[in-house]
């Protein structure tokens, strides 16, 4: 707890970090049997801030997203959203409040069309009525480059398009905080550029972004702050370049998994 505070104080925080964080986790613990997937993790993201998360496989990054999004309950700790405690809210409620997530391995609704995938998100999570939701879903499809696939089955979409569906579905819920889980993986350099433009647009619109990514150069183009996780803990956080220079980070992350 005090450790975390020291780290947070040392971190280069953006100027607009007054008031409650957009989303803040304090002392999160998630156990699977005797294994601690999250071992007292505390982190925050301020309004409009873009936070990157790196770390070796099994560091607990995706587990952290599950905890923040309410996919499963945590064993200990608390989560607040704009200062309000949401630790016990369901995933659907958190989504309606404005927290959206994507999945590392895309999980499209395969019995539905691409448009229907996005439409259900716009109606359920976005709370829009039918006519408004259809038009908004179309707008999101346009922004994510999926318009030409709108009426085709999601099952027929390739990996890149499945990743786009993940982002489009999350965007359609009109989130204030978006959790992006390795959406850059498997993309070509040109596709990555497109993706960065898209995420920059979200950021410019005031959205809070937390992005787990292995592709550092893409991440570094967008984020304000970087968190490095290892073995269920936060190893370092702060200015992206400082974190990447941190010897402990280099040992845990770059040492085992050079770019």
């Amino acid at each position: 707890m005090t450790m975390h505070k020291q780290v947070a104080r040392a971190a280069a925080k953006p100027a607009h970090s007054t008031g409650p964080a957009a989303i803040e986790a304090t002392g999160l613990v998630k156990r699977y049997g005797s294994m601690r997937a999250l071992d007292a993790v505390s982190m925050r993201a301020d309004r409009g801030e873009a936070v990157g998360i790196v770390g070796p496989n099994g560091a607990g990054k995706t587990t952290l997203f599950g905890a923040l999004a309410g996919t499963f309950p945590v064993n200990q700790g608390s989560i607040t959203y704009h200062g309000k405690v949401i630790t016990y809210e369901s995933a659907a409620t958190r989504c309606a409040m404005g927290i959206a997530r994507t999945y590392q391995v895309p999980r499209p609704f395969i019995g539905m069309t691409v448009f229907e995938n996005v439409l259900v998100a716009a109606r359920a999570g976005g709370g829009r009525d039918k006519a408004e939701a259809a038009d908004f879903a179309a707008h999101v499809l346009d922004e994510t480059g999926l318009m030409k696939l709108a009426n085709t089955p999601a099952a027929a979409a390739g990996l890149l398009d499945r990743k786009r569906i993940e982002v489009a579905r999350a965007m359609a819920t009109s989130p204030q905080v978006i959790l992006l889980d390795e959406i850059g993986g498997g993309l070509t350099e040109a596709e990555l550029v497109e993706l960065i433009v898209l995420i920059d647009t979200l950021k410019a619109g005031g959205m809070t972004i937390i992005w787990i990514e292995h592709i550092l150069h893409a991440l570094l183009k967008v984020i304000d702050r970087l968190i490095c996780m290892s073995e269920g803990r936060i190893l370092a956080e702060g200015d992206p370049h400082d974190v990447m220079e941190n010897p402990a980070v280099r040992r845990a992350y770059l040492g085992s998994d050079p770019e």
Partner: peptide, 25 residues
Amino acid sequence: RGRLGGESQAIRDDEEAASSVGVST
């Protein structure tokens, strides 16, 4: 044709993903 139709199909295809786009499963 209505909202429940889309939401129930989303649950059928992937219940966890449905809840994370706001469907009260």
